[in-house]
Design a binder for these strands. Structure first.
Lengths: 231, 231
DNA sequence: CAGGTTGGTAATTAATCACTCACTTCCGCT
DNA sequence: AGCGGAAGTGAGTGATTAATTACCAACCTG
């Protein structure tokens, strides 16, 4: 189902902005334009980046950009759309297969998931940054992120949690969506603190840090004198 | 100590950009310029906002902006600096007094802290958004956020956790900074999901949601069949 | 009321912006 | 070989940009 909605959205954007997404043929110069655009957009932001600076960095005439992408915003969307689908699909599909065919305890599965999701984020960081920032200013991108990325990831996690609850691996006295939010929050918080406070908030090697994080997530931070609330 | 460093930074910025921060006297028109700038910067981003549109929204001649703030960036910093100090100080000072003179259990203290920190974020959301986005592109702002906001908040939380660990309220087999990261992560995750997935990720009234979040934080999400890792 | 400071502005500036046009070059196809 | 369309470009376009100028009016202060 999400597959269909996603294609609808892509099709809508393509029509709205006159993008030609059908031909996958990209010339060398087009590749260089996209690469230069990723760098300059992520360094200066969409509005702060000039098409002339992108052309210069790509070693291409400015008119070439407009030949292929019609407008500056068209160029942006040509970056964003493939990046979204390339991040969404692995986020959704990989955990499913990975989890369904193992019987490892959560204490091992979760840090593994965190680890390769973080690798994905690191590899695509520039693109992700562009998408996050521009989703604040461009409604089409915001809607795509909300409806075609965040929602789908979240629902996928909720579904997994639900199954785990039935197996007794997760507490059943908390709603599945609260548990899902907790799992995602701890991962997000790890990434954020690792990037803005590298030496304060992440002091050991990543494996150790992730297993501590998982331990806190699974069994909480309360000490012996803090009594459990009755739900 | 953080007080001194903060003032140093403000002084440095003021000198670097020729800002006059000494005179607190603001005329009516200056107030309207700042207000218009907050709205337009947060809607279009710094680069996307034109000084002429700010002037128009403020009902002021464009030259008036430059009379007072010298450059467009000067105007930005005149927004950012007071906003930073107005967010930093309550974030740091309020929890200390609030916690030191109560003996409530963490199960009550933590949701209260989350709640009024969230109120603070909501009230200052436009300014916070500007600061976060521009810290990606403007090194001075990034450094201020890292060194004068994030670090200080983080260290404050670590200090609290340390004290709680000695009282037995928090597990002692996890490093204090990991616990602090967990507390901040759950709060951040709550705010983020509440804003991008309002109806999926936050379904009940805020009080209930916060107490569930706290419960997950304090006692974990693991079920009876997930055994505790030996640390 | 002379003299200086401050708040405010209309008009203008040079630079830069996204984008277009007329044109050439390249390449696959028959 | 040669045609046709796509790829690519140099030289601009008008509009908009941040910032400056030169100037006015209202204020204190002595």
């Amino acid at each position: 189902m999400e597959e269909k909605e996603w294609k609808d959205w892509v099709h809508w954007v393509a029509e709205e902005y006159g993008l030609d997404l059908s031909k996958e043929r990209v010339t060398e110069k087009q590749r260089r334009i996209l690469e230069a655009a990723i760098h300059i957009f992520s360094e200066k932001g969409f509005e702060g980046a000039s098409t002339s600076s992108i052309a210069k960095k790509a070693g291409v005439a400015e008119a070439t950009i407009f030949k292929h992408y019609k407008t500056k915003k068209g160029l942006l969307l040509h970056l964003v759309i493939p990046a979204l689908s390339r991040v969404v699909v692995p986020f959704i599909l990989k955990p499913v297969v990975k989890i369904l065919d193992t019987d490892k305890p959560l204490g091992e599965i979760i840090p593994e998931l965190y680890e390769d999701r973080m690798k994905l984020v690191e590899q695509n960081w520039r693109k992700i940054q562009i998408i996050l920032v521009e989703s604040l200013y461009q409604p089409e991108i915001r809607e795509a992120v909300q409806n075609h990325v965040a929602t789908i990831i979240y629902e996928e996690v909720v579904e997994r949690v639900d199954a785990w609850q039935k197996k007794g691996l997760i507490r059943e006295d908390l709603p599945a969506y609260v548990v899902a939010r907790s799992i995602l929050s701890m991962g997000l918080g790890f990434i954020v603190t690792k990037n803005i406070l590298p030496d304060k908030a992440v002091q050991e090697d990543q494996k150790t840090e992730l297993s501590w994080t998982t331990e806190a997530l699974l069994h909480g931070i309360a000490g012996p004198l803090e009594k459990k609330e009755t739900l």
